[in-house]
Design a protein around this nucleic acid. Structure first.
Lengths: 153, 153
DNA sequence: CTGATATAGTCAGTCTCACTGACCAGTTCG
DNA sequence: CGAACTGGTCAGTGAGACTGACTATATCAG
């Protein structure tokens, strides 16, 4: 069997972390969060964010974002408050329960990074990060300048 | 903003390749393949495989796998043939049209790998592969599946 | 050989989460 | 003021996943 493509190995690693974090969050008692909700929730900030901006960042339509925010709100992870700067808009802000989840997720991510460092050794871990950052220069269309990618459809 | 988690960088790279390959396949005229179909199709081998095994490897239910194989069959990418070893079962085998797609996909993957090597340089590319392979030892729960054909449960 | 049980696969129904299009309310600017 | 733009929702559709029930074949104990 030929060597697996590096991208497959990357996918395996990324999926592992996603699973670990999602498991940790569920184990901490927050078991009513779907993957789609998590993707949106990962973009929340302390300052609050508009549904439209959330949609753009998560690369989904504002309609989809709106539905997911509804669910997050019903489960008390976020609140919608009026935007003082624009009466049409409302800001999605993290609620206390949401902040708890973020802490659990961040702690698990840090733990995984420590495990990886231990397994690979500091040097290989540094080389990994270095190479991944270098790759990002040519693989991440959202770094800065780019035209709207014509998503197939 | 703090450093992105390595897993995020991996995800970006993996998604990039997925997109490039999918675009190349579509550009070659095979524009009736959905991502879900592709995920199943990526597991096909020359020997044929049962729907049940396909489902297990793609981590979906056999019902879902069956629907996706239906679609692939309707589009002439695969065929279902009787399994000579078991009259209950049928084998999903690649059809000529499916083989063409696999070649397009593999060619694009190799092209991307060359681009990455050029961008990073041979040394960093080797370090990347090395580290990713090392990580796989602790992040891939299905490692054996890739080396060994069957894992009886 | 027969009957119990396991396995391959399909059918039917449901759920989640994307999408588009139509629409309303508020903002901005001529 | 009125036109055009923007934030957001409502309604409808579709893909793709799920569970549960079912048929047909295989296998194994007695």
């Amino acid at each position: 069997m030929s060597e697996p493509h590096p991208a497959l190995l990357m996918f395996i690693g990324a999926r592992y972390v996603e699973q670990r974090v999602s498991d940790a969050v569920a184990a901490a008692g927050y078991d009513d969060i779907t993957p789609a909700m998590a993707r949106v929730a990962a973009r929340l900030s302390e300052d609050g964010i508009r549904v439209t901006d959330l949609a753009e960042q998560a690369r989904i339509t504002k309609q989809s974002a709106s539905v997911l925010v509804d669910q997050l709100e019903r489960a008390a992870y976020v609140e919608r408050v009026p935007d003082p700067a624009d009466a049409r808009a409302r800001l999605v802000v993290i609620a206390p329960r949401g902040r708890e989840v973020q802490q659990v997720a961040r702690r698990e991510e840090r733990a995984i990074e420590r495990e990886w460092s231990r397994h690979l050794g500091a040097e290989r871990m540094a080389a990994l990060k270095d190479a991944l950052k270098g790759l990002r220069e040519i693989t991440d269309p959202y770094r800065e300048d780019f035209a709207q990618p014509a998503r197939r459809g």
